[in-house]
């Protein structure tokens, strides 16, 4: 079955590359690049060595933004899920800020962090923080608010209260949905990093896209897109694996 789904996936890719080749046949470097030009461009940027620096820069920013968002978003979300009064006060605000694209914050980010050392990194990290923060808060809030009352009641029945209740019941009950939120947030952060790096920074995969565009090297633009897709896929697969490992250990996903 595993081999079969792999072959099916290959079929989809082959069809896509075929159509792509047909559509871009005979194009030159300044036009939409063909698959072959993209592959060649990928070889060139990889050989230049800048590609690796750009990958590291993007992953570094996402890692910081995502970790900060998780560190603040999970506790806040759980608190909002647990205390209805707090939720009534804070959640409408959170939900109103959520639809604002993080990119819209860029001008403010530049003002806030401009002039400091690492200013470009800080403003990109701030945008990534925003992009990951809202999905994490929202998932943690609903995870906690939707915990089956049966579990809470039986814990109280057995005199399990306070931190013990949190550690043994609330956290593990909320965990699956929180993990799903983290995975979603990481995916969004990775999408946003490219846009966040298109202004004001001089490293990262987003910068590489803009820089190649300015040099009219569309093959290098497409090469950067291939790299973005591959790393995005890698991050998501990694998160999915972390998720299933943690859940399997708790027996939730077994059987």
């Amino acid at each position: 079955m595993k081999l079969r789904s792999f072959l099916n996936a290959c079929l989809g890719f082959a069809a896509f590359v075929g159509l792509w080749q047909l559509a871009t046949h005979g194009n030159k470097v300044g036009d939409l690049p063909s698959p072959w030009m993209t592959a060649r461009g990928l070889g060139q940027v990889a050989a230049q060595g800048v590609l690796w620096q750009n990958i590291i820069a993007s992953v570094f920013r996402v890692a910081w933004g995502f970790s900060l968002a998780a560190a603040i978003g999970i506790p806040l979300g759980i608190a909002l899920g647990w205390y209805p009064r707090l939720r009534d006060v804070v959640n409408p605000l959170v939900q109103s800020l959520r639809p604002i694209s993080p990119i819209a914050w860029l001008p403010f980010a530049v003002i806030m962090f401009g002039g400091t050392a690492l200013s470009s990194d800080l403003s990109a990290i701030f945008l990534l923080f925003l992009s990951a923060f809202f999905p994490i808060v929202t998932a943690s809030t609903s995870a906690t608010a939707s915990i089956d009352q049966k579990y809470i009641r039986s814990a109280r029945n057995f005199g399990v209260e306070g931190f013990d209740l949190f550690r043994r019941v609330v956290l593990p009950a909320a965990l699956p949905q929180v993990l799903t939120g983290l995975r979603l947030a990481l995916g969004i952060a990775w999408v946003v990093v490219v846009a966040a790096e298109m202004l004001g920074v001089e490293t990262g995969l987003g910068y590489q896209v803009m820089d190649s565009r300015n040099a009219l090297r569309m093959d290098h633009v497409a090469a950067a897109m291939v790299v973005i897709a591959a790393i995005g896929l890698l991050l998501d697969t990694g998160m999915a694996r972390v998720e299933s490992t943690i859940l399997a250990r708790r027996g939730v996903r077994r059987g």
């Binding site: 049966k150 009641r153 029945n157 009950a173 708790r250």
Partner: peptide, 20 residues
């Protein structure tokens, strides 16, 4: 208030799926 002296048995078991 609930007490350990009087225990509630739920319809869908209230046992915790993350514990053995």
């Amino acid at each position: 208030a609930p007490s350990r002296k009087r225990v509630f048995v739920f319809q869908e078991p209230g046992i915790l799926p993350w514990f053995s």
